[in-house]
Design a protein around this nucleic acid. Structure first.
Lengths: 187, 187
DNA sequence: ACCTCCACGGCACGTGGTGTCATCAACTAC
DNA sequence: GTAGTTGATGACACCACGTGCCGTGGAGGT
């Protein structure tokens, strides 16, 4: 028999989300999370660099998928089209996580610290996309703006997807947001 | 003779920036800042809600100026034009603060915590602009995208302004960024 | 002469986050 | 099967952030 129960990280995430949802983020202590997962505070910080990070487990996969799609985009595509190539695999990734995303969004929306973390994750994503665009020979200026615009479209569409009921609507909402952005910037 | 030296807040800000620049943000303690300003830790937290906030003194004025300009924009202006109306008074505000902005940008760039705070300030600004646009009768969707786009243009132009040498170039850099954004989204 | 105000000091406390060492099942080597 | 090694976790001490609470004493009014 093994010395410890398996999947310590998963247990911590599950315990954290449950407690954040029940009592709120600030009212929940790291020690309480660790305790609920049958672990200690010290172990929590071995898996997550800080208390917020336990809610941002999926951000690595998001960035990974997005960058893969960017790398696979046609060579003759426009900067914005390349940046937006990430939207397809990302939409696919979210289709099955609608209930979880809602729960998590409720927690994040209720706490400024978590919103800050969410924003810097998005900025890191934009920076990575920008670097990929520059690698493709796109100018620095166009790369920044295309990457930032792509992430903005994602951000807006994500917010809409969370607050409506159709889990499969993500891709459509992204297209709509992009179209609205074009119409706004055209004037 | 008065019991305390005047301008406690200003002394705290000055001491903080000096110490952050010399030793780095994380290596500087709130107690050290307060001590350098001839005050105590407790008093620091009466002026600033947390350690980061001492670097974000100007954000209130920035938002105020921007929103004033939005309110004063012509009734028939497009959503994006209204959102961008804030760029003029804001550019004017920054002309005289180029050296300070550089010093501050160096500190912020060296620390993720501070970048998070900067991002949420920008998001709050975008949210305020969005609300102002909605008040003017602009649709929710267009308001979000116009506000977010306006802030993105500001953000990009600000970064360029800090890294180049002409303190008066802000307005021009904003126009260039906007033009590049139009060209990126048009394709 | 008295009173009220209020900016600040002082102190205790909870929590986040880290460095360091101990523990002990599982795995490896022979 | 015995010995050594590895690696996830516990245990503990510690520091800095941030807050609640009360004390203090000059400024300014009556």
């Amino acid at each position: 028999m093994s010395r410890w129960k398996p999947d310590a990280e998963g247990r911590l995430i599950k315990a954290a989300i449950t407690l954040f949802d029940e009592r709120g983020y600030e009212q929940t202590t790291v020690a309480q999370i660790a305790d609920a997962a049958g672990l200690t505070k010290r172990t929590f910080f071995r898996y997550f660099s800080d208390k917020r990070e336990v809610l941002f487990n999926g951000s690595g996969e998001l960035e990974h998928r997005w960058l893969e799609a960017v790398a696979a985009a046609p060579v003759d595509a426009s900067p914005l089209a390349v940046a937006l190539a990430g939207l397809d695999p990302v939409a696919e990734m979210f289709d099955e996580r609608h209930p979880f995303a809602r729960l998590r969004a409720g927690i994040v929306d209720a706490n400024p610290e978590l919103q800050e973390r969410e924003l810097i994750k998005l900025q890191n994503l934009a920076a990575a996309i920008k670097a990929a665009l520059i690698d493709r020979g796109i100018s620095r200026n166009a790369a920044i703006l295309a990457a930032q615009t792509g992430v903005t479209v994602f951000q807006v569409a994500f917010a809409r997807w969370v607050e409506q009921d159709d889990p499969a609507a993500f891709r459509r909402l992204m297209d709509e947001s992009l179209e609205e952005l074009r119409s706004v910037t055209a004037t």
